[in-house]
């Protein structure tokens, strides 16, 4: 058993999980392939001059990893976005580790590190931290949409829906983990899952039927798949397109030299 207790406190329909994730991923791949096909129908030149690799690398670091362009528009704007960006990236990386754990041999060091070793604790901590970052960023962005007035942010429904989607995804994830912890005898290692542990404290002592937890787990899995499928067809596609555009644009800015002081 891992330091976090067992996962086997309620039934998880893994077959449904595999099917729904496969559908989500297939739609995602089809959508992205269609987007790529759309982009490559453009025949005009993308670069005015030869692309400058140096400028692209600098801009990637400053504008994508540090998101300085948001900072220039205000601290809270930056905080909002960087929380979602790094939080989302964190959750994505942790999901990738989760998938790997299903593939790698059970006796490998990687598997042992993340299941019974200290890796499990870091995994849980990172998961909660990343989730909290997305939660805070998405919540602040949603609040911003409705409080800063029509002059600053467009509050159209589809855009709000995308943020709501993200928020719901993380919230159900936390809730699931909290319910699982609440149903397991407390262990010091739970503190690594600091958000879920806190939430577990709130529901402690209440009996949650296994069927409800199964339903919640299924809902969360479906939501994840739906979110992945939704990306290529919604404004969430900017997750890929905006960094690409920022990097392509870097060469042009190096020529003009007035947008990024560090390229001069």
């Amino acid at each position: 058993m891992s330091p976090f207790g067992t996962d086997l406190i309620y039934y998880k329909p893994w077959l449904f999980f595999i099917i729904i994730q496969t559908i989500g991923l297939t739609i995602f791949i089809m959508g992205m392939a269609d987007n790529l096909n759309f982009y490559y129908r453009g025949k005009a030149r993308s670069f005015r001059n030869n692309p400058s690799l140096g400028a692209m690398i600098k801009v990637f670091f400053n504008e994508i990893l540090l998101q300085r362009q948001f900072f220039a528009r205000g601290f809270f704007r930056w905080l909002n976005h960087i929380l979602i960006f790094w939080g989302f990236l964190g959750l994505l990386s942790l999901s990738a580790i989760g998938v790997l754990l299903k593939i790698v041999p059970g006796d490998s060091a990687f598997f042992e590190f993340f299941t019974v070793g200290s890796g499990y604790l870091y995994y849980k901590f990172a998961g909660d931290l990343a989730g909290l970052m997305v939660l805070a960023g998405a919540a602040a962005a949603l609040i911003g949409r409705f409080t800063t007035g029509p002059d600053s942010i467009d509050t159209r429904l589809t855009d709000t829906a995308a943020l709501g989607f993200l928020l719901l995804l993380v919230l159900t994830g936390f809730l699931l983990e909290a319910l699982r912890l609440a149903a397991t005898p407390w262990a010091p290692a739970f503190e690594y899952s600091f958000v879920a542990d806190f939430m577990a404290g709130l529901v402690a002592g209440r009996q949650v039927p296994g069927s409800l937890m199964t339903a919640l787990w299924t809902f969360h899995a479906t939501l994840t798949a739906a979110f992945v499928a939704y990306i290529p067809f919604s404004k969430m596609v900017h997750i890929f397109a905006a960094p690409a555009e920022i990097v392509i644009n870097a060469s042009e800015e190096e020529l003009r030299g007035d947008l990024y002081g560090y390229l001069r």
Binding site: Y39, G42, K43, A44, R45, F47, S152
Partner: peptide, 24 residues
């Protein structure tokens, strides 16, 4: 016709997150 645009410009259409900054 999409041929008048560059792949970059078609990516730009997807890069907009409708953040609303330009509106100001």
């Amino acid at each position: 016709p999409l041929s008048c645009l560059s792949p970059r410009q078609l990516i730009e259409l997807d890069a907009c997150s409708r953040c609303g900054e330009c509106m100001k």
